[in-house]
Amino acid sequence: MTDYLQVSTTADSREVAMRLVRSVVGARLAASGQVLGPVRSVFWHEGELGEGEEWQVLLKTTADRYPELETRLRGEHPWTNPEITFTRIDGGAVPYLEWLRATTE
């Protein structure tokens, strides 16, 4: 069985978030993506507590496509060390998961 993933990253604007989604979905590194926000974030940055507005990006992909997806996100993201994490999708509607796999092949 294919391992399915939901990948998350953030961006400082809706425009950057949409550019990232269009890039990876257009390259079939992800089957789909959503941009949520804005959200307020609190974080450590260069030794200081920071706060800001961000846009969250959620992408659906397979474990096989993840390494190339991460490389592309890191290469196109304006931040030096962007958040890029994933959560395994342990289940779901079989037709959707089949579509996800076929779309990213």
Results as ranks from 00 to 15, higher is better:
75 G>L: 07
65 R>V: 11
67 P>L: 02
77 H>T: 08
20 L>W: 02
81 N>V: 15
91 G>T: 02
31 A>S: 05
65 R>P: 09
19 R>T: 11
68 E>V: 04
1 M>P: 06
26 G>A: 05
64 D>I: 07
76 E>F: 11
75 G>F: 04
11 A>C: 13
30 A>I: 03
86 F>K: 04
62 T>E: 00
12 D>Y: 09
60 K>H: 11
85 T>A: 13
72 R>H: 10
74 R>H: 10
17 A>L: 04
37 G>V: 08
86 F>A: 05
75 G>Q: 06
43 F>L: 11
20 L>I: 09
10 T>N: 07
60 K>W: 10
41 S>M: 07
7 V>D: 00
71 T>H: 12
97 L>D: 06
52 G>W: 05
56 Q>H: 12
29 L>Q: 00
52 G>D: 02
59 L>V: 01
54 E>M: 07
82 P>T: 06
46 E>Y: 12
9 T>L: 06
4 Y>V: 03
9 T>Q: 05
8 S>E: 06
77 H>Y: 09
54 E>R: 04
70 E>T: 00
59 L>C: 01
71 T>N: 11
19 R>Q: 13
7 V>A: 02
53 E>H: 10
6 Q>G: 01
36 L>V: 11
6 Q>P: 02
104 T>P: 04
36 L>D: 04
69 L>P: 09
25 V>Q: 03
91 G>C: 02
68 E>D: 07
46 E>D: 14
52 G>E: 02
44 W>A: 14
103 T>K: 05
31 A>W: 00
55 W>L: 04
24 V>R: 00
14 R>P: 11
30 A>K: 01
56 Q>F: 06
16 V>Q: 10
40 R>D: 15
41 S>V: 04
96 Y>C: 10
101 R>S: 14
55 W>P: 01
73 L>I: 09
57 V>S: 03
9 T>G: 08
22 R>T: 14
5 L>M: 14
1 M>T: 11
59 L>M: 03
6 Q>E: 12
96 Y>P: 03
18 M>Y: 09
44 W>K: 08
101 R>K: 12
66 Y>L: 02
68 E>G: 03
80 T>C: 11
78 P>C: 05
8 S>D: 04
32 S>G: 14
36 L>F: 13
77 H>N: 03
78 P>G: 01
14 R>W: 14
83 E>I: 08
13 S>Q: 02
80 T>G: 13
18 M>R: 12
43 F>Q: 03
69 L>V: 09
52 G>Q: 01
85 T>R: 04
25 V>C: 07
97 L>P: 00
64 D>Q: 13
104 T>K: 01
53 E>K: 09
52 G>N: 03
33 G>V: 02
65 R>T: 10
36 L>E: 09
40 R>M: 13
8 S>A: 11
32 S>M: 09
79 W>R: 07
60 K>T: 08
83 E>K: 06
83 E>A: 08
103 T>R: 05
79 W>C: 04
4 Y>W: 10
12 D>C: 10
5 L>I: 08
26 G>H: 07
46 E>C: 09
8 S>H: 07
80 T>H: 14
57 V>F: 01
83 E>D: 08
89 I>K: 01
17 A>H: 00
91 G>E: 03
80 T>R: 14
27 A>K: 10
14 R>L: 15
79 W>L: 08
49 L>V: 13
74 R>L: 14
93 A>Y: 13
15 E>L: 12
42 V>G: 14
67 P>N: 04
102 A>V: 14
58 L>N: 02
39 V>D: 13
30 A>L: 07
60 K>L: 12
87 T>F: 15
29 L>S: 02
